[in-house]
């Protein structure tokens, strides 16, 4: 890689995408987008304790269990990915 490549827009984007999980790109498909949104949401629920408590009241579970459930759902938030079109 040449020194100038470091500064072109594509490599900057790639760098961003590598550094910040969830940064979008032009070829992002619907599934990937949804997965990112869901994971971000779950992470936000886990981070905001009042929100976690609010969910815990609705589902009548302990807050600890609720946190664990959200963590578990981060694995496959939108079900398995769609089949790739072989072109």
């Amino acid at each position: 890689m040449q020194a100038s490549d470091r500064f072109n827009i594509n490599s900057q984007l790639e760098h961003l995408q590598a550094k910040y999980v969830g940064t979008g790109h032009a070829d992002l498909n619907r599934f990937e987008w949804a997965v990112n949104i869901q994971r971000d949401s779950y992470a936000s629920y886990i981070g905001h304790y009042p929100m976690l408590a609010y969910f815990a009241i609705a589902e009548n579970e302990s807050i600890g269990r609720e946190r664990y459930n959200f963590m578990q759902r981060m694995l496959l938030p939108c079900g398995p990915p769609p089949e790739r079109d072989e072109e």
Partner: peptide
């Protein structure tokens, strides 16, 4: 830790099952 990279790529859902 739980690695999800394979589960995100596998349309059959098997990888997620075995994560």
């Amino acid at each position: 830790e739980l690695d999800y990279s394979e589960a995100d790529q596998d349309p059959t859902g098997k990888a997620a099952l075995y994560a």
